[in-house]
Design a protein around this nucleic acid. Structure first.
Lengths: 263, 263
DNA sequence: AAACCGGGTTCCACATAATGAAACTTCATG
DNA sequence: CATGAAGTTTCATTATGTGGAACCCGGTTT
């Protein structure tokens, strides 16, 4: 599937356990595996002994291991965006009292890297490490809109265009028109396109040279707010996004100016 | 180091990047690597192409990849403790207005799997996935106290007994006496043993048959509360721990015990 | 401008490690 | 106690990983 020799195959197995979503037996994995019995068995042994999987001997089931949590913590910490954005997101969430998301684009999908719940939490689809569709979320559209042409084309080709609600854009054409609007406007709306009753405003996070770092959004439920009300927060959202981009740049690309002057 | 053939070696490289803590160049990794140039290079290529690492071509540096965040999210979701405990922890934090931690024991270390901060309601990977010492934290001692003898001995042998504060227990003997106290009392204190000014009460989460699932704690700063005040919360903490244990057991019946086959 | 340098990348003969069919071991069940 | 389904081990075969050496390329020195 993904090639890359033995390591790639082992990671395929890991992914398969992840995809199953709950403790899974050897036979279940074998049934849908591309690998023969002994090979699959060996991979599971290796991954378990490495702590990437955990084996429950009583139920004879495999689950993802805690080593992944440690690694992900390290990944989050050394990412250029999330740790820098944290204090800004805290502040924005406290000021607005709304749910705030921070996301990055990962293989044409939205990957949420941080989140702050409102005081009255809205029960909805979201959490760090979770992935979501790009074509029908505020952060997703905000990022697609500022993607360079070749990458945008590739990303568009990978969207599923499933109709979640009546407002979901379900064709590349209508989505592209929307992205054009977003580019002009500078920020994106989610008008109940993913979940009924849930709306948001989303702002891309861009470097000076307009390279896309990620996006952030303020989300609300229509039961307690309106899109117009959220829109009043746009200036604050934009300022926050700008501040994050500035700091990310200073931290991650400290020599950018220097190199530029020499070039 | 960890053997397990090619996969193990690749994961060693991944761990090395994680340990470095910031974007790292090929040459830096090579200098402290057990692998020859070409081999290390190939592993980095493979891991990058798999999304376990990310490569920044401008700076020629490697960082941990976003795939780890997705996998860790899945790991968290399919763990038997954390997702079940979540609503209880929400409630406890809301009721007490204090910081609440949920932890599991991982190789004689405390692994935090969830957290609620009074001011910042949800912080995913900033807190979850973090590891800490067992011998000088509330959750750590609560778990050690209820570990079966052979495992306790092994865990004790792996503690560093670094003196963080004047109150830190720095010998196995004094710690064991403390653990005996905890067993009798049923819950643990942290009396500024890890950080000056920070105290907590911690409760183990045990199955009916006293198998250890994890621990949870309520933490406060001495600037705003006292240990005595926190102690009033013990009944509530105990009820919550009991409720979590019950539900964990119901969903994932009898004594479940995650086994890491690492020797 | 030619020689040099050092980090990064590619090559390829060789050796190790992965492979998977088949045999074997449990353990539950009729 | 025979039957089978699920899990584990074996081992000859071969695919894969290995790593020394050569190469590339931008930058620096002579």
């Amino acid at each position: 599937m993904s090639g890359d020799g033995t390591v790639g195959k082992a990671l395929d197995v890991l992914e398969q356990v992840a995809a199953y979503g709950k403790p899974v037996r050897f036979a279940t994995l074998l049934a849908e595996s591309q690998f023969p019995k002994a090979t699959l068995y060996r991979f599971l042994q290796t991954l378990t002994s490495q702590g990437m999987l955990a084996y429950d001997p009583h139920h004879q089931t495999y689950t993802l291991g805690v080593r992944l949590l440690r690694l992900a913590h390290a990944a989050w910490t050394q990412s250029s965006l999330a740790p820098i954005a944290r204090p800004f997101i805290d502040r924005l969430s406290a000021e607005t009292g709304q749910t705030v998301h921070l996301a990055q684009l990962d293989h044409a999908q939205v990957l949420y890297v941080d989140k702050r719940n409102a005081a009255k939490p809205v029960e909805m689809f979201s959490a760090a490490g979770k992935v979501g569709p790009a074509y029908c979320t505020g952060v997703g559209k905000a990022m697609l809109a500022f993607l360079p042409e070749p990458e945008l084309a590739k990303a568009l080709a990978q969207q599923s265009f499933h109709r979640f609600t009546d407002n979901t854009y379900t064709t590349p054409e209508t989505l592209c028109a929307e992205l054009e609007e977003i580019r002009k406007r500078g920020y994106a709306f989610d008008r109940e396109e993913h979940e009924p009753g849930i709306v948001c405003i989303a702002q891309p996070i861009l470097t000076e040279r307009r390279r896309l770092l990620g996006a952030m959004s303020v989300t609300g439920a229509l039961s307690s707010t309106t899109l117009e009300e959220l829109e009043h927060l746009v200036p604050r959202l934009a300022r926050t996004a700008q501040a994050i981009a500035d700091e990310a740049q200073a931290w991650r690309f400290p020599d950018t100016h220097f190199q530029h002057m020499r070039a």
